[in-house]
Nucleic acid binder design. Structure first.
Lengths: 190, 190
DNA sequence: TTGATTTCTTGATATTTGTCAAGAGTAATG
DNA sequence: CATTACTCTTGACAAATATCAAGAAATCAA
């Protein structure tokens, strides 16, 4: 499980070896087949997962159109955070784009971490602030950047996705149509 | 200080009377004159504030242009969360749009809350998840809505700002130019 | 109250992005 | 490997939004 250790560390920071073992023992390795849903909107989200291999897409449907909010690749986590914490209906669907392996934890087991690892609430806080900051940056990109600029920035930071994921989904998460995406891409490749 | 109690409750949820008193005693009432900066970008953000009266604008400057990320009115909080928590240079400026009264707390005093109020870390977590969810919604609005739709939604939720704030700032935080904003507004008013 | 300053509106025009439709390319399945 | 289904690209066109410039309106400060 040494890779899960890395994901935990990368999100939550330094944890003692003992604590790390405690945390990791509460996760289960599981598989999601291509096309399967890890979460459906309007259901309650009872789990949180780290992607070990494969790809998960988080999306919602409005006006009959799918809007991709994020794509989680190896090392990323996936959950509807609001639903996971508040037990409200989920706003997102989470679906596997390819056969995917995940480390998954239930809400009950997640809550145990807090009891077993004294420092946990502090680590969790830092984790949440990082997530918040990432989204702040993302909002900012929509206030201050054009479609081309968002394309370039995303390509810099996530180039590996461009040959693993249907490009229409990347277009959607960047807030543009597949056609616009395709035209920008053409320029960038020539 | 009964209003500060309400802000705390609205963000952090139910707190016992005793704990609330403890928390509130660590905040100071302070004034920020119109035009004054509560925070400058690239400086470290050492405080968190709730607006008691007046208006604070959070913005950044890129390519010589000001981009308004948010406007905090009565009851909202204002800080660069990332800088406040990680002590990194702030990405935002925070400036008073009018003479403003705030309840302010320093990082040191904020950390004391955690020691004095046992439930605090749990409340803080819920607070952060709510903030995260709000930003998720905001990202989603840029992926799935037109300028008109964002205008309408923001007007529904924050109509009081429309006659208190230079409209160019609202335009910016909605991700459109002042001209586009003005034209949409004209249609909506006729 | 009166200038001075800032903010808002409006029109003309340019640019960006979206829509629709068709075809080409690619991958999935039996 | 053949056919079926997706996915991507391209062009023509439409719609949305930005830019620039000028003037009107509102606000501020002396």
């Amino acid at each position: 499980m040494t890779e899960l250790e890395q994901y935990i560390k990368s999100y939550f920071g330094v944890v003692s070896s003992n604590d790390l073992q405690t945390i990791i023992s509460l996760f289960q390795l599981a598989s999601v087949k291509k096309g399967e849903f890890l979460l459906q909107s309007d259901r309650r989200c009872d789990t949180l997962s780290f992607v070990q291999s494969g790809l998960l897409r988080m999306f919602a449907i409005t006006d009959g159109k799918e809007v991709t909010q994020w794509i989680s690749s190896k090392g990323y986590f996936a959950t509807d955070l609001s639903s996971f914490v508040f037990e409200t209906p989920s706003r997102w669907n989470i679906q596997a784009l390819v056969d995917t392996e995940i480390y998954i934890i239930t809400r009950e087991d997640y809550q145990k971490i807090g009891d077993l690892v004294p420092k946990w609430s502090e680590l969790e806080k830092l984790f949440l602030v990082r997530c918040f900051t990432t989204l702040e940056d993302r909002v900012f990109s929509h206030l201050s950047m054009t479609a081309k600029e968002r394309y370039d920035l995303f390509f810099e930071q996530n180039s590996e996705l461009f040959n693993q994921v249907p490009l229409q989904f990347i277009a959607s998460l960047l807030g543009m149509t597949p056609e616009t995406f395709s035209r920008i891409r053409k320029k960038r490749m020539s």
